[in-house]
Amino acid sequence: MALGRSSRLPSLSGLRFVAAAAVVAQHASLVWTHGHGESATLLRLGFAAVTFFFLLSGFLLTWAWRPGQPVPVFWRRRVARILPTHLVTLLIGVLLLAATGRAVPLWAWLPNALLVQTWSPGFDLLDPGVNGVSWSLCCDLLFYLLFPVIARRAAAIRSAHLWAWAAAAVAAAVLIPVVLTAARPGSGGPSFGLGVTLRQIWLCYTFPPARLPEFLFGVVLARLVREGRLDGVRTWHGAAAFALLYPLDQLSPLLFGVAAITVLPLGALIVGAANADRLGRPSRLAHPAAERLGALSLTLYLSHYLVIEYGDALLDPYGTADGLRPLLYTAVLVAGSLAAAWLLHALVEEPSVRALNEPRRRTAPVTLPDRPKETS
């Protein structure tokens, strides 16, 4: 098994920030539509970024997994990474709703707090509750719960069978929109727009089991890379493949743009970046500044939509901005999102990870000194 020359993968941290920035760009388009919806052109870019994160999650968890690692320790570390930041941004969202005079019903925030909202067929991506972007954490939570079992099964796959498992994962990601397009669940009911029903977009995009193929593809890719089976893949291969397929992604039916078209080039992008670190190839994504920005990806993802939504309402309450003002407002809101991400990272994420991941120290029993004997 070829382990390569580096076990650290800083280039993937840099790529993580690029994906988070793509989601920010998609949601920042609210400024240009005066709060009436995000750009349809950038919607597919946001879809691709989510697929990238799910692939990357499977890849990195498998890369870091070591046989014999206690499952409760693994779960504690994953919860420490996402839950405190999620709950803080959820609380901020509740307070912002209350400050603007809107009701904060229990049904709007409790499923969100517990990260179970996307398991419901009533989940509406257009009205997702307090901090809508947290829907993807429901999928992450499922991945984390299943991963110890997945890791053991993946480690038992024979090397010769890895390609078949990779193909099966990609085929599953393609088959989901095929089945949902043919069956068209929810027809006659509420529409998501762009030719799909709310039930279709829920089952394809936000329902956690539907995103397992992408996660599993990342798991298998990590094994292939660790064994040196993909050493020839470079970062630019994945970037070029994505650039070539993105126009097709834009033209394809919406459900196929969720993951089916982009899962392979994004997988190649992850493999190429990992190879650059393993094999000592130069990579700008491994620059310390890019790595530091990558460390902000979770907090940026969880905070940016609140900043953009409420910031846009504050800067342009009547939706009349024109000329250069939308550009200026966008710059202000992106800068505000980065500032919020840095604050959350420094004040919530890092302290929580340290506090919850510190090994519990057993308190030594206290031994009282012997009482001096009384003398008569």
Results as ranks from 00 to 15, higher is better:
H34G: 09
V24K: 00
R281Q: 10
Q200E: 13
V366C: 13
A273R: 01
E291P: 02
A210F: 06
L125S: 09
C204A: 15
G294L: 03
L230G: 09
L145S: 08
L347Q: 15
E38I: 14
G195L: 04
A364I: 08
R362E: 15
T206L: 03
G93Q: 07
V348G: 09
T206Y: 02
Y329P: 08
F207T: 02
V174C: 13
L338K: 04
P148R: 05
L30S: 08
H237F: 11
C204S: 14
R284E: 13
L175E: 01
A222M: 06
T89E: 02
L324D: 13
L30I: 02
L264N: 05
T33W: 04
P67E: 13
V31N: 06
L110S: 09
A341Y: 03
L216D: 04
A168E: 03
I308M: 02
G188M: 10
R184A: 15
R76N: 09
G93M: 05
T118S: 08
G129C: 07
G4S: 12
S13G: 13
V50W: 00
L96F: 09
S13H: 08
F242D: 02
A2M: 12
L12N: 01
S252V: 00
R281S: 12
L333S: 04
V271A: 05
A28R: 00
V94L: 14
H161N: 15
H34K: 10
P365F: 05
W119T: 06
P10I: 01
L338M: 08
E38D: 12
W75I: 06
L314R: 08
A274M: 07
F47D: 00
L344I: 04
L60Y: 03
P247C: 11
P128T: 10
D231A: 13
L221K: 01
L194T: 10
L244H: 09
V348W: 02
G195M: 05
S29V: 10
L145H: 07
G323D: 11
R81G: 12
D127E: 15
A183Q: 10
H287I: 08
R362L: 14
S159H: 15
W236A: 15
W163N: 10
A260F: 02
H304D: 06
A64N: 14
F123W: 02
Y329R: 08
E38K: 04
S297N: 10
A240D: 09
P67S: 11
S7K: 10
G257K: 03
F256Q: 01
S134M: 07
P213W: 00
A331R: 07
L216N: 03
L162V: 05
A173C: 10
G323F: 06
R325G: 11
I157K: 11
A164Q: 15
S352C: 07
A286I: 03
L251M: 14
A2G: 11
Q26E: 14
R371T: 14
R226S: 13
D127T: 15
T181Y: 05
L198W: 00
R211D: 08
V307Y: 04
F52L: 09
L327W: 13
H86T: 04
A355R: 12
W119A: 03
A171S: 13
D316R: 01
H86A: 11
A289P: 06
H304V: 00
A313E: 13
L15Y: 03
F256D: 00
W342A: 15
L91H: 10
P111R: 11
V219K: 00
L60A: 12
L87M: 12
R371I: 12
D124I: 05
